[in-house]
Each structure stands twice: as C-alpha cells, then as structure tokens.
C-alpha cells in the first residue's frame, strides 16, 4: 500500500461499484493526481474487459445441436405416472379376480387368451376375461401422453 494514496484494492472496488458515492474516496481522487491516473488506467482495463469479443457463433451450430437431440426424443414416463399405471392395472386385475367380474369381448378375449396360452402357469381365463381392464387404462394413458406431447390437439 502506498502511503497517502488509495490502494489498488480500493480503486478496483470503487470501479466495481462496491463503494458508490464514497465521499472519502471521491474527495481523495479530486485532490490526488497520482490516484486519478491509476484510476484512469484501471478504467481502460475495465473497458477492454467489458467489451464483447469479436466472435459470432455460426448459425449452423444451433441447427446441429437441434438435429442431434431430436432423433433421440425424450419419451419417458415419470415416476408418478408409472406408479399410477401400475396401481391402476393391479387394482383392475385384483377387482376382476376377486369379484369374478368379466366382460365378454368375444374375439378380443379369445385373441389374448391365445397369446397368453403360450405362457406357462398363468390362469388364462382370469387375464383374458379381464383384458379390457388393462386395455382401457392403457388407451387412456396413451391419449394423455399424445395430448401432452401435442401430437394430437384439442380444439376449444
């Protein structure tokens, strides 16, 4: 620190706006040619540092980024949605199993019964008879996802 002069640190802080309208600093600067000169040099440095570099980003960079992120997409089901789906399906199948309630969709039931028969140790009747309870919530979820992603739009 120079005796009788403002320190470099004080001058930098002054230019950083840390001491706005500091009377002591301003009155010292008014009467001290040396500190005014140092401050002026700092002003030039600050001016250069604040000047935006003469560089521009080629517009193709943005396009290349957008092209790279698009194909992957971002299809995913959040934890909440996944939990709701699992809960709904479990509730539907359990309800159908416990009550013995079933809806006869004729060929649809038969089609899924045929598929499920390929799997071992599964009670074909329960699942095929209640397949509607799986299909309907799935259909609702698909419609909600499509609306959310604006693949389909509602007109008001």
């Amino acid at each position: 620190m120079k005796q009788g002069h403002l320190t470099e640190y004080q001058l930098q802080q002054y230019l950083d706006g840390q001491h706005p309208h500091d009377y002591d600093i301003e009155s010292h600067l008014t009467g001290c040619h040396t500190c005014r000169e140092t401050l002026e040099s700092y002003r030039i440095v600050y001016g250069a540092l604040s000047a935006a570099p003469e560089v521009r980003l080629n517009a193709s960079v943005r396009s290349r980024v957008m092209a790279q992120i698009r194909p992957a997409g971002r299809f995913k089901i959040s934890f909440e949605t996944g939990f709701s789906i699992a809960f709904l399906l479990t509730a539907m199948i359990t309800a159908g199993y416990l009550t013995g309630f079933s809806v006869d969709f004729g060929k649809i039931n038969g089609f899924f019964a045929g598929l499920i028969e390929q799997l071992p140790k599964i009670n074909v009747r329960i699942i095929s008879d209640n397949i509607v309870f799986i299909l309907v919530p799935l259909l609702i979820i698909i419609v909600i996802e499509l609306l959310d992603k604006k693949v389909i739009k509602l007109k008001y």
């Binding site: 980024v65 992120i69 997409g73 971002r74 995913k76 992603k149």
Partner: peptide
Amino acid sequence: IRRGDTRRFGELID
C-alpha cells in the same frame, strides 16, 4: 423440455 418438447431447447440455446 423434460416433458419432451425438444423444440423449446432452441429457446434455451438462444
């Protein structure tokens, strides 16, 4: 963007 609206990522870039 997280929900899949990738076009909005252009806004983030800008």
